[in-house]
Design a protein around this nucleic acid. Structure first.
Length: 559
RNA sequence: GCGGAUGUAGCUCAGUGGUAGAGCACCACGUUGCCAACGUGGCUGUCGAGGGUUCGACUCCCUUCAUCCGCUCCA
């Protein structure tokens, strides 16, 4: 790609086009908007539905369970479910979302930083009678608690202590430590006045801990109180896991098989930003693929590569799409392996990528959690049920047997799960960014004019074809209307336009990414042919009127 | 959540303490007839929202909402 083309691919222009042409609007715009929420306009709705439909078609409807696709360890089945947005709150307790999504945070009034309570190390210290001032009161404190969020917190606590007392590095051994380092969530809030936050000059600059609800809360029942609180799902996956037994019992599926779901999820993102990329309401397209544990690695590799190819097949350039394997330390505690499919969005810096989809090997974590209760990793690195202070499960599982009986091998086990989890809005945004092009085309006088063209893959294009009468008389509009009707009858999304000069009409279609334009002209009236014009090459061919639907359909299918 | 910038017509943007502007787009008529034509005419705004100062506020002040950038966060 040429350098100037990259420069022109700016997010501002893309956002402006999305609004101008009705792809994406700011939610509740007439009231000033709502941060983190977006609406799709007429063309955006078509586009996103095409994304969703392509995914479901390629993953589920068109999947042939009798043959193994290239690269797959064997043949497999794929089925869909559609589960509710709201589930029994115990689902989120066992899945781990409840604990994880209820972070207690403190803010530092001095440094304007925010910290997670359980990640902040703290240790009591004094230095030969020297004092640190307390914020607001200016009381002199001889003993304070210093803090660190660093990985190597022992050294960091030392340098924080020296900084707090205004001492040089060489006096590190004169620090008098009291007790061992602990985390801030173990400290009584009343003691916070003695805590020196990282980088702060005085003690007591931390606010009281506040809960950050990353899951959206709602109330069930007209007289609902907080006891009736429920959560909007933060992911669609759990709807699949809790229905695993239902699907196995009702649909005659045999391992290996996948259960798929497309639907909305909700998260209270701290900082929604970058257009629709990080929204608080978003749509996921998820597969939970269940297989034998000993075959799971092969399936993980298969799905990772298959999903990467899916984006390439829909026109995303390999230059801007990467498949990135997570490092071991990045992996979630339950994951054996995870890879991200990431796209070089225009709002990111050169060399940076944003996640479109994650493919995770989740082992038996999810099914086991819903059987036994919330799991955590023990000292030996093995998963076990997390216990509360009474030695009972912190969050009790369903107690239902979610194992699978393999009647070929005559054995019962918990299947392992491969989870390709894609964002429908992120994919749609990536396809929009990828489609945006500016080029120069000659006008009727031969002068080069700038053209904005959305080069959507024909499967994704919101409008497949447009039909124009060259002029608004001599029977051309009527002829064009017939062709338009035939295309509509064939189920194709198309537009009819007789407004303005022909060149302008072509440009209008270019800007919304319509792959084909059909024009009725003077010759049509004598020989029954029309021109079909290609969006990308601008080439026109004459075809017979009765072949129009066939030609458009075959071009769409060939792409 | 913090700091900075921004918010005026569908879009891109001028503008001044004293009745709101341009270009493009859109609509109508005429002309032209295959890549953003031309002429004539027309439509469009609570100047992001709320409050204050003022005889008078789009303009000055305060609050708030949203967007963008940087920090933070990103399970």
């Amino acid at each position: 790609m040429k350098a100037d083309d990259i420069m022109s691919r700016s997010m501002d222009k893309i956002v402006a086009l999305c609004k101008r042409r009705g792809f994406i609007f700011q939610n509740s715009e007439i009231y000033g908007g709502q941060n983190g929420f977006w609406d799709y306009g007429p063309l955006g709705t078509e586009l996103k539905r095409n994304v969703r439909d392509s995914w479901y078609h390629d993953m589920v409807s068109a999947h042939n369970e009798l043959i193994a696709p290239q690269g797959a360890p064997s043949s497999y089945q794929m089925v869909g479910v559609e589960t509710a947005l709201i589930m029994n709150p115990q689902v989120w307790k066992c899945s781990g979302h409840y604990d994880l999504f209820h972070d207690m945070m403190v803010d530092c009034k001095a440094t304007k930083s925010r910290y997670r309570l359980d990640q902040m190390r703290v240790r009591s210290v004094s230095f030969e009678g020297q004092t640190v001032k307390q914020d607001e009161t200016d009381v002199e404190l001889a003993t304070v608690m210093v803090t660190s969020t660093a990985e190597d917190f022992h050294d960091d606590l030392t340098s924080e202590a020296l900084r707090a007392f205004g001492q040089k590095k060489k006096y590190a051994d004169k620090l008098q430590w009291h007790g061992e380092a602990t985390t801030l969530d173990q400290i009584d809030v009343a003691e916070f006045v003695n805590v020196v936050a990282p980088g702060a000059q005085k003690a007591g600059t931390l606010t009281a801990p506040r809960e950050f609800n990353l899951m959206m809360k709602t109330i069930i029942g007209a007289l609902g109180t907080d006891d009736d609180a429920a959560f909007l799902r933060p992911e669609t996956a759990q709807g699949i896991f809790v229905n695993f037994k239902n699907v196995v019992d009702s649909s005659r599926v045999k391992l290996p098989f996948g259960i798929c779901q497309v639907g909305k999820s909700f998260r209270n993102e701290i900082t929604p930003r970058n257009f629709t990329f990080r929204s608080r309401e978003f749509e996921q397209m998820e597969i939970e693929f269940f297989c034998r544990p000993d075959e799971s690695t092969g399936w993980y590799t298969y799905w990772r590569d298959r999903r990467y190819q899916w984006y390439l097949g829909l026109g995303v350039s390999q230059d801007r799409l990467i498949l990135r394997d997570h490092h071991a330390e990045e992996l979630a505690h339950y994951s054996v392996g995870t890879a991200d499919i990431e796209y070089a969005f225009p709002f990111l810096d050169e060399g940076e990528f944003g996640e479109l989809e994650g493919i995770a090997h989740r082992g038996d974590f999810d099914l086991r959690s819903h059987m036994e209760g919330k799991l955590t990793k023990n000292a030996a690195g093995e998963l076990e049920v997390e216990l509360n202070e009474h030695g009972k499960p912190k969050h009790r599982g369903s107690g239902k047997d979610l194992t699978y009986f393999d009647d070929q091998a005559k054995e019962r086990f918990l299947p392992h799960v491969i989870e390709p989890s894609a964002g429908a809005d992120r994919a749609t945004l990536a396809f929009i960014c990828e489609a945006y092009h500016e080029d120069k085309q000659p006008d009727e006088k031969g002068e080069m004019q700038e053209r904005v063209v959305m080069k959507f893959h024909p499967r994704l294009a919101p409008v497949k074809a447009a039909v124009f009468p060259l002029i608004k008389k001599e029977g051309m509009p009527e002829k064009a209307a017939e062709i338009f009707g035939a295309l509509k009858a064939a189920g194709l999304s198309c537009q009819f336009d007789q407004q303005g000069a022909i060149g302008r009409r072509y440009r209008r279609q270019d800007e919304i990414g319509t792959p084909y334009c059909i024009t009725v002209d003077g010759d049509t009236m004598t020989d029954g042919t029309v021109t079909i014009r290609d969006r990308d090459s601008l080439k026109q061919e004459r075809i017979s009127i009765d072949k129009v639907v066939e030609e458009v359909t075959s071009r769409l299918n060939a792409s």
